[in-house]
Design a binder for these strands. Structure first.
Length: 795
DNA sequence: TTAGGGTTAG
């Protein structure tokens, strides 16, 4: 009988060729349950009343354990005697092991309904299934049941309960189960250490590990791996070293997984030499260890070593880089801004059939974006078949980082419309899109997002983005209020606040904020010095700027990056020493980027040095192809010098390259509404009134007849085509003057840099009207007050 | 018949 049953089931579906296993697995995942009998008396012919023979039971076990024959196991089960608890346990375990978690819970429910006796072996995998499904209520029902049947003190069952409660995000319940266990083994302790780590609380995880050691337990590889993961997460180098000693003492230092965790811990704590040392001591290395070492180099900014490590890995005959190897090395492409390396990794992934893989694809999108290859990022993003929230957020961030704010908003809106695909913006989406709203001076939208952000509770990432957004919208007070109310200020919060003061020309306050940060015990990073040096540059604090730049290496052991060098060129330009600025660029240890030459170009413009400006423009042109601002700035300098042939040459060059001059626009907030103007704008409903106010202001400030004698009449005629008389900023200032509260400052935003004429006029208006006028352009804010500007006439 | 693990994107 048993042989017949087995033969019939084997013939039906269970014995399939080995190379067809993936298909079998698919079939298993979509398994259909056979119709079961509701009442066995209706099916008197079924053999279920007879005890199950050992051979059939063994067959059931073999099918359920095989990993690809659950359908056959289920069919066999239906033919068997259901009163036997063992066969139910086998099926529940088999379903859970095959990832069929809800089916496992269904089977347990059926067992309950049919009144089958449950034992110690019934519960563990049902509990595991509840955890995997994040079904807290069902998990608690099972918990209640096992208390009822008196199995709640079983050490296996309790260990599964601890894990389940962590999986569903209830650390307190997990802890309660652990505390109430009559006996605990190493697995119980390890579950607590691993559970807190998976909950994202590395410190609690380490606390439990210490308690475990204190209770006299000898840690095994599982506990050590979790504890080292906690050290990596929280950058606890000291604890990591202590665990390393423990590992050597317990003789598990040669274990490849323990070794990987050690390499990872040292790498993430910035101790790359120790990571290398552990790596070399591991006798049998696998891909994961290599990947951890690559990551260690990346974390320490050692891009060249990370590329070399990947190459060495390829040269090792037994080692084949996988998707994680590439994911780990990609940030190095961003660090060095190497598009070629990025493309080469993309090509390798394609050739080695590592694509599609959403994490790798998303990492590539991010790397392309950071190498300013927005089109490549876009193309790749469009073909990711399984885009997830991180993929969308990454593409939005690529647009934002590359100042493609309209595109960022468009993608964000598309993402919001795709909510029916279960894609809901998270805190990072909100924080990523805020800079675009702020850059486009969409103040009301920023405020709406601020209101929306409340649903995320107190969220540091969002608060940091809000501080930046409000500062960018000219509302420094609200930015400071958000900063002061933040419960969890981090380094980024401080850096953002320093930058906020810097962009508004409050350099001294920026320095004071940096000192406050140090007093709270927070160590500065590269970003802190970008904020600080930028602030010194905007406020013309030349001496302090140099002091902090030199202190970076000597006091804080931080190598200045390309951005800090850029700030120093701004500072040198402000001191008027263009030769020194050029020498500084030539002696930099990093290759100058377009941003560096852009700073030199601004310095040349401010010092009216056309030859230097031409040098900068040619360098920029050789480094990138679409820098519109650079051409416009140079063209304006030629125009001011009356070199109209050169103006036309630049114009033709821009046309040839398909570059359109940015349409200058300006906005001012009036009664919660943004009023926008363009050049010579007469479309505003109050256009006549604005024009009259402007006339009065021009007369009052003596700017109504402005004859620059260095121009010949023909130059003046040509110059009038772009003359400052119709500049949008003047219209916005005039509307602001008459439409905002008397005596109160008001903010004007423009998307291009303010010209010299409008800057001079704004200073005079601020004195004539005794009003503070704030004008923000792409780089910083000009606070005009009493006839002077916070920028010190250098921008 | 019962458990846990390392390297991966914003």
């Amino acid at each position: 009988m048993a042989a017949t049953v087995l033969t019939s089931y084997c013939c039906s579906s269970s014995l399939k060729p080995i190379d067809d296993s993936s298909k079998q697995l698919e079939e298993t995942k979509s398994v259909k349950f056979p119709e079961r009998a509701r009442n066995s008396r209706r099916h008197p012919s079924r053999p279920s009343i007879k005890p199950n023979s050992p051979a059939v039971t063994r067959s059931l076990l073999a099918l359920a354990d095989s990993g690809c024959a659950m359908d056959s196991a289920l069919q066999l089960f239906e033919k068997m005697n259901h009163s036997d608890t063992f066969i139910w346990n086998v099926i529940i375990r088999g379903l859970a092991r095959n990832g069929l978690f809800s089916e496992a819970v269904d089977f347990y429910r059926r067992m309950e309904r049919e009144g089958i006796r449950m034992d110690y072996f019934t519960f563990p995998f049902v509990i595991k299934a509840c955890g995997e499904l994040m079904w807290l209520t069902e998990g608690q029902r099972v918990h209640a049941r096992l208390i009822k049947v008196g199995l709640d003190s079983d050490i296996y069952v309790c260990n599964f309960l601890v894990e389940m409660y962590f999986s569903v995000g209830c650390a307190e319940l997990a802890e309660k189960v652990f505390e109430e266990m009559p006996q605990r083994d190493l697995v119980s302790w390890n579950s607590m250490v691993a559970g807190y780590l998976s909950a994202g609380d590395g410190f609690s995880s380490l606390g439990w590990f210490r308690e475990m050691i204190g209770s006299g337990k000898k840690p095994d590889r599982f506990g050590v791996i979790s504890a080292l993961g906690a050290c990596s997460k929280e950058s606890c180098l000291k604890s990591g070293k202590e665990i390393h000693c423990l590992v050597i003492k317990n003789g598990i230092d040669l274990d490849v997984m323990v070794g990987t965790s050690l390499v990872d811990m040292y790498g993430k704590c910035g101790e790359v030499r120790s990571a290398e040392m552990v790596f070399h001591l591991i006798p049998l290395k696998n891909v994961a260890v290599w990947n951890s070492l690559i990551n260690a180099y990346v974390v320490s900014g050692k891009s060249a070593e990370s590329f070399a490590c990947l190459r060495l890995m390829q040269e090792d005959q037994h080692m084949v880089p996988d998707a994680i190897s590439l994911i780990n090395v990609l940030p190095s492409c961003s660090q060095v801004g190497s598009l070629k390396e990025c493309q080469s990794i993309h090509g390798y992934a394609f050739r080695k059939l590592l694509l599609p893989q959403v994490v790798l694809e998303t990492s590539l999108v991010d790397a392309y974006g950071k190498c300013a290859a927005v089109r490549s990022a876009e193309r790749l993003f469009s073909v990711i078949s399984e885009k997830n929230l991180i993929s969308w957020n990454t593409m939005i961030a690529v647009y934002v980082q590359n100042e493609k704010h309209e595109e960022a908003l468009e993608l964000f809106q598309e993402m919001c419309l795709k909510q029916y695909h279960h894609l809901k913006p998270d805190a990072i989406t909100i924080a990523s899109i805020l800079p675009s709203y702020a850059e486009l001076a969409m103040v009301n939208e920023c405020k709406q997002i601020h209101a929306l952000a409340a649903k995320f509770g107190s969220n540091t990432v969002i608060s940091n983005a809000l501080i930046h957004a409000y500062a960018k919208c000219g509302d420094l007070d609200t930015a400071r209020r958000i900063f002061d109310r933040m419960p969890g200020k981090n380094l980024v919060s401080w850096n953002t606040m320093i930058l906020a003061y810097g962009m508004h020309g409050f350099g001294e306050t920026a320095i004071a904020t940096f000192s406050q940060m140090r007093e709270t015990g927070i160590e500065p990073d590269q970003g802190s010095f970008v904020s600080l040096l930028y602030s010194c540059s905007i406020s013309g604090l030349i001496e302090q700027g140099w002091e902090y730049f030199n202190a970076m290496k000597s006091e804080y052991n931080i190598d200045p990056g390309i951005e800090q060098y850029g700030c120093m060129i701004d500072l040198l330009g402000r001191s008027g020493n263009l030769d020194a600025a050029r020498e500084f660029i030539e002696q930099m240890p990093l290759p100058p980027t377009a941003r560096i030459w852009g700073s030199f170009l601004s310095a040349s413009r401010n010092n009216n040095d056309l030859a230097s400006a031409e040098l900068a423009a040619s360098k920029i042109s050789s480094l990138e192809h679409d820098n519109t601002g650079c051409y416009v700035l140079l063209s304006n300098m030629y125009a001011e010098a009356g070199r109209w042939e050169d103006v036309n040459r630049i114009k033709s060059l821009m046309k040839e390259k398909g570059l359109a001059k940015t349409t200058a626009s300006c906005s001012v907030q009036i009664g919660g509404k943004s009023e926008r103007f363009v050049y010579h704008d007469v479309s505003h409903r109050e256009a006549n009134m604005i024009s009259e106010v402007l006339d009065v202001m021009l007369k009052q400030t003596g700017e109504d007849v402005k004859m620059n004698m260095k121009f010949r009449p023909v130059d003046l005629i040509k110059r009038r085509r772009g003359s400052p008389e119709g500049h949008a900023v003047r219209l916005a200032i005039c509307l602001g003057l008459v439409s905002t509260a008397v005596g109160k400052p008001f903010v004007v935003r423009q998307n291009t840099r303010i010209c010299k004429d409008c800057h001079r006029l704004a200073k005079k208006i601020s004195r004539a009207c005794n009003r503070e006028i704030v004008v923000g352009d792409g780089k910083a804010f000009h606070h005009f007050n009493g006839g002077v500007c916070s920028c010190g006439d250098y921008w």
